[in-house]
Simulated scan of single mutants.
Amino acid sequence: MTNPTLTFTQTVVPWLALGLSMIAGIIGTLSYRLAIQNHRELKGDEVLVPGILHNPTLSHPDHENCVLQTTIINKSKRKAYINGVQVFSKDNAEIDVNWSDRIDPYGNPEGSGAQIIAVVDAASVCIRRCDGKAFSDVRVEVMHSFDAKPMILIFDPLAGWQGYFAQ
């Protein structure tokens, strides 16, 4: 004859373990969904707003056309950084450039040629062609820490304000 306590234990313990594992699975799933929701909320306010690409006024007017400048505004509470700038012509050929957050009076980037620019509230990005030719109808891709996709800016010297708002 079997012991009733032993039979009861052998019957209830597996069901109790199954129930507890199901509860743990539900709690784990809810915890994962909450973590994803929190991550989306934190990433939701990460916004960089680009200014208009323009040729800055330099002390030597012949150098102005081979330099582009823009201001990037950080609307987030978190600090962002710019870690890369690429420039492409209208036929998608990459243009060799140097970039920095500041330039000298002749338009040469100060500091190292390729660097990281911290964007707390706003930062200036200055781009100079290495070959000294004028910029015309180019696409500028700015890589930053808020997104894996680059921020794309278009420079068309003939479009003016209309070209900026038509994007």
Rank of each mutant, 00 (worst) to 15 (best):
Y106T: 14
E64C: 10
V119K: 05
Q69G: 05
C66G: 13
K77Q: 11
L68A: 03
R40D: 07
T70S: 14
L68C: 11
I27L: 11
G19Q: 02
I117M: 07
L42K: 14
N74S: 06
H60P: 00
I103Y: 09
Y32R: 04
F88A: 02
V119C: 13
D45W: 03
G113I: 11
I95K: 06
Y32N: 03
Y106W: 09
I36T: 13
S89E: 10
I72P: 01
L20K: 01
H54C: 04
S112I: 13
N38G: 02
H39Q: 15
I95Y: 04
N65D: 13
S76P: 03
V119P: 09
I117C: 04
C66L: 01
D101E: 10
L34P: 00
G25D: 04
I73V: 15
T71V: 15
S76Q: 01
D96Y: 09
G44C: 03
P50A: 08
A24E: 09
I103T: 12
G44W: 03
N92D: 13
G111E: 14
R78Q: 15
P50Y: 01
V119Q: 08
K75N: 08
I27C: 01
I26F: 11
S89F: 05
I36D: 09
E110H: 02
P61C: 07
A17F: 01
G113Q: 11
T57A: 06
E110F: 04
E110Q: 15
D121E: 13
D121G: 03
S112Y: 03
Q115I: 08
I95F: 02
T29Q: 09
I72N: 04
K75P: 00
S59D: 15
I52Y: 01
V97K: 07
V67H: 02
I26D: 05
V47Y: 02
S59W: 04
L34V: 03
G111Y: 10
S31H: 10
G107C: 12
R40H: 05
I23C: 05
D96L: 13
S112M: 07
D45S: 11
L20C: 07
L68Y: 05
L30V: 08
I52F: 06
L20P: 00
D101A: 10
V67M: 02
S89T: 14
